[in-house]
Simulated assay, not measured.
Amino acid sequence: MHCHIRIKGHLDPSWQQSLEELHIMHEANGTTLLSGVLKDQADLYGVLLKIRSLSLSLLALETSETSYETAEK
């Protein structure tokens, strides 16, 4: 499943491996976008638990069965 997770603040890129290899993109408005492909809901829950354990504020979560790039073609 393709996943976009937006959190408040800028997350250090060193967390990328701990977050199931989701790509970390800092946005100009002071948020971080985590995006990429997760194997299943268990991986998604693991990422959400990591976000919670870091006391980060979850702003948005979007998932789809196909990637956004594929859906646009």
Results as ranks from 00 to 15, higher is better:
2 H>M: 13
33 L>T: 04
44 L>W: 10
51 I>N: 09
50 K>V: 06
3 C>Y: 09
31 T>I: 00
34 L>K: 01
29 N>A: 09
3 C>Q: 11
22 L>P: 03
13 P>T: 02
40 D>P: 06
33 L>Y: 01
58 L>D: 07
41 Q>W: 10
26 H>C: 02
65 E>Y: 05
41 Q>T: 10
71 A>P: 01
34 L>V: 02
32 T>Q: 00
53 S>T: 14
8 K>F: 14
46 G>T: 02
34 L>M: 05
22 L>I: 05
50 K>G: 01
4 H>S: 15
4 H>C: 15
4 H>W: 14
13 P>M: 02
16 Q>D: 00
18 S>Q: 11
18 S>G: 15
58 L>P: 06
67 S>V: 05
29 N>I: 04
60 A>L: 08
63 T>D: 02
29 N>Y: 02
11 L>I: 14
24 I>N: 00
39 K>F: 02
62 E>H: 11
49 L>M: 09
59 L>Q: 15
44 L>E: 12
42 A>T: 10
20 E>F: 12
22 L>H: 03
53 S>K: 15
24 I>M: 00
62 E>V: 09
54 L>P: 04
59 L>H: 10
53 S>G: 07
8 K>W: 12
73 K>Q: 15
48 L>H: 07
49 L>I: 06
17 Q>L: 04
38 L>G: 04
53 S>C: 09
36 G>T: 03
29 N>C: 10
14 S>K: 12
11 L>W: 08
23 H>F: 00
4 H>R: 15
10 H>G: 10
42 A>D: 05
15 W>R: 09
21 E>D: 14
56 L>R: 01
17 Q>H: 06
56 L>A: 03
2 H>S: 14
9 G>W: 09
45 Y>D: 13
43 D>T: 08
15 W>K: 09
22 L>W: 01
32 T>C: 00
5 I>Q: 13
12 D>T: 07
26 H>P: 03
7 I>T: 13
18 S>C: 03
28 A>R: 09
64 S>W: 01
69 E>T: 07
61 L>N: 07
45 Y>V: 07
21 E>W: 06
68 Y>D: 11
62 E>G: 06
32 T>S: 03
40 D>F: 05
67 S>C: 08
68 Y>G: 10
12 D>K: 14
36 G>D: 02
26 H>A: 06
29 N>K: 08
59 L>W: 09
40 D>W: 04
35 S>T: 05
62 E>R: 12
1 M>A: 14
40 D>C: 08
59 L>N: 12
36 G>S: 01
8 K>N: 15
17 Q>T: 07
68 Y>M: 09
31 T>D: 05
22 L>G: 04
20 E>P: 04
19 L>R: 04
3 C>A: 15
51 I>F: 06
6 R>K: 15
53 S>H: 12
35 S>F: 00
30 G>E: 02
35 S>Y: 01
73 K>C: 15
57 S>Q: 13
71 A>D: 11
38 L>T: 04
49 L>F: 07
25 M>H: 11
60 A>F: 08
31 T>A: 00
61 L>W: 06
41 Q>A: 09
54 L>V: 04
32 T>H: 00
11 L>K: 11
40 D>Y: 02
43 D>A: 15
66 T>H: 12
35 S>A: 04
72 E>M: 13
72 E>I: 14
35 S>K: 07
19 L>P: 07
48 L>W: 08
20 E>C: 15
18 S>W: 01
48 L>M: 14
